[in-house]
Nucleic acid binder design. Structure first.
Lengths: 249, 249
DNA sequence: TGGCAAGTTTGACCTGAGTCAATGTTTCTG
DNA sequence: CAGAAACATTGACTCAGGTCAAACTTGCCA
């Protein structure tokens, strides 16, 4: 969610990251955060592993290096709704809060770059720039949540799926993965169930819609975790969005 | 949404507010904001009036003194989803952004206490405390949006209505309106249609659910804009929430 | 290398909430 | 105070997406 540096200022390397070829390790690219170097550590989780349960103490903040994680909320009878998605360069943790509000789960293999919460908070108070940046990021996050409200409240199952694929395609494009004109390949780091929890659907409906779109030639399913869009603009039209939320890729 | 002062530090008055008896005028109670006194102005809107349209330039930030406003998002075919609700003491506006992202409408008669955006932003850069407070408020807002995601994605029509009534009852309690034990009266500053747009339902479903609950003795409808809950805890149980989101009132 | 578990697809059926339409009730306004 | 406009209720009907159940893939690991 929270991305500690502007994407525009991406620098080449982060020499002691376990993954040298990683896309982005936001933490390491921020000059202010260099001062926390000594308290930095790395964590690795495998798909399906829970990182923190809602209500548990949360003693670190982190940045996603590779993989994907989700924040979920559960009702007593087990109904589950994903309320946040963490992709590479996203930030995990809420400064000033010592317990987690949501359950955080790795939905694919995941690498985190972590700082202990206390020194991070101290640094934040000392460097107004960092607080301003965090505010900006939180506001972006809030805007994303508001688009998500529209998706959950008013879109049809098909529009939900299309919106999600458009979102993922844009996200990959924004992180610099250039695609051949026309066809776009998307990595889907989610099971059908997790996808359903994201979209407020059942996993059966997700499967039916995805295979329906395949039958109509809008996309190809390559294995379970890869989708190839035949035509981005057609998918965008299908999503119900007007398209000015981002560039046409 | 954004509440510029801690509710716990509420001070008595705000002498040049048009509404002397108002509940809270957050702006006036913040010491930092006293420095913006000269650029402060007031605005009054009547129910149904639109304050800003999405995409329009937004030259001020404001605090709600009385009444209610909504942020809404619309799809091309007219489907509408409310994505934010502004109640007394909430903050309107996004520092750093010059155009409005969402349409803001007064859903009841409304009084705003406004500052021009530029001087407000300057002050924010100069006073880290204000930026930190704004960050904290935005994070609370984000948490609220996430509860809303669960509501839209996973709750039934009845649970949605119950959740909303519980939310309003708590909100009124938090703002200091003590209620007789047992029965709780709630002001409903929304039409059935606005309520439907908040909950991701149609206005017919809202009407049916509300009258259904009335028939079952869970609440009384006094006119169109007032609801009396017979039993808060029963309503809470109906909402599907586990109840630790706030005090039992 | 084969067997099992996790994940996925597909089918048949059902139901909660949407749609369309008519009627009732307030509340403005001239 | 009448008439209209806005808002709300109610009914009949439909259908998108949920539920339950069975079969099919895939990949893991023993």
């Amino acid at each position: 969610m929270l991305n500690l540096v502007d994407r525009t200022t991406t620098k080449p390397g982060c020499n002691d990251c376990p993954i040298r070829e990683r896309a982005v390790c936001a933490h390491c690219e921020s000059d202010e955060l260099a001062r926390l170097e000594s308290t930095k550590f790395y964590r690795k989780y495998s798909a399906g592993q829970t990182i923190i349960w809602a209500g548990e103490p949360m003693e670190f903040v982190a940045s996603v290096i590779t993989g994907m994680a989700s924040l979920t909320q559960q009702m007593e009878d087990g109904r589950t709704q994903m309320v946040g998605m963490l992709l590479p360069s996203d930030f995990l943790g809420r400064p000033g809060r010592q317990t987690a509000t949501y359950t955080v789960t790795a939905t694919s293999d995941l690498h985190l770059c972590c700082f202990h919460r206390k020194p991070f908070e101290t640094l934040m108070v000392q460097t107004p720039h960092l607080a301003m940046r965090l505010l900006e990021m939180t506001l972006d996050e809030l805007d994303a949540a508001r688009d998500w409200l529209l998706l959950l409240g008013r879109k049809t199952a098909r529009e939900k799926i299309a919106s999600f694929l458009v979102f993922l395609a844009r996200r990959e494009a924004a992180l610099g993965k250039r695609q051949p004109q026309g066809q776009i390949t998307i990595g889907l780091p989610l099971t059908r169930e997790a996808l359903a929890d994201y979209l407020g659907l059942t996993l059966e409906t997700v499967s039916r819609q995805l295979n329906g779109m395949k039958r109509e030639g809008m996309l190809q399913l390559e294995g379970k975790r890869r989708v190839i869009l035949s035509d981005f603009d057609m998918m965008l039209a299908e999503s119900g969005d007007d398209g000015d939320g981002g560039l046409p890729i």
